[in-house]
């Protein structure tokens, strides 16, 4: 019989599933796992529970989402889970406010500036002070609000002259 402690085990397992585009981030760091539940199945005897993991997409068109679902499935199968379902929900809409502090730290050390501020403010990126992930200087400027993936914008550091990605506050 599955218990609360085994839900913890699933959360732990999910820490090893990484974002295919930014491999230093786990799906937990990204804040896309909305819930992990063992649900009793009505048509079976009471000891049978189905694992339901609910995830939410970052951006609507992000091609990493299908990949992430597959990676979660294979990770669960490897660990011996068979009766599970991965659901997607759009509500509430994903926000970088759900990104963990460890996640932000991992981003910086990977060379990507972490989201600044809270998502409910509608920022004009060109007016933000984004610290350079290389040298820490705030003397930076925006090159483009769009970058190599949906979640990033392009910046450059005017101090160390390095261009860098900024993970947009969303």
């Amino acid at each position: 019989m599955k218990t609360v402690s085994s839900e913890k085990a699933i959360w732990h397992l999910l820490e090893s599933v990484s974002d295919p585009e930014i491999p230093v981030l786990s799906v937990i760091d990204l804040g896309i796992i909305r819930s992990v539940l063992f649900v009793r199945e009505n048509n079976h005897d009471s000891s049978d529970h189905q694992l339901v993991i609910t995830i939410t997409p970052t951006y609507t068109g992000c091609p990493a989402m299908d990949m992430i679902s597959k990676q979660i499935s294979s990770k669960l199968e490897e660990a011996g889970y068979q009766n599970f379902e991965i659901k997607q929900t759009l509500k509430p809409a994903w926000t970088t406010d759900w990104m963990t502090e460890t996640g932000k730290e991992k981003l910086r050390s990977y060379g990507i500036a972490a989201p600044v501020g809270k998502s409910f403010n509608n920022y004009d990126l060109s007016k933000l002070k984004i610290p350079c992930p290389q040298c820490g200087s705030e003397n930076t400027s925006m090159i483009s609000e769009f970058g190599s993936t949906s979640c990033k914008a392009l910046f450059k550091c005017l101090n160390c002259k390095e261009p860098f990605d900024y993970f947009k506050c969303h």
Binding site: T60, I143, S144, F146, L154
Partner: peptide, 20 residues
């Protein structure tokens, strides 16, 4: 390059919305 990337990013968002 930046503007090429901007338009294709917008295209990607639009296709994601269409899918939904």
């Amino acid at each position: 390059l930046e503007q090429d990337i901007a338009l294709t990013n917008i295209a990607l968002d639009q296709i994601g919305q269409a899918r939904n």
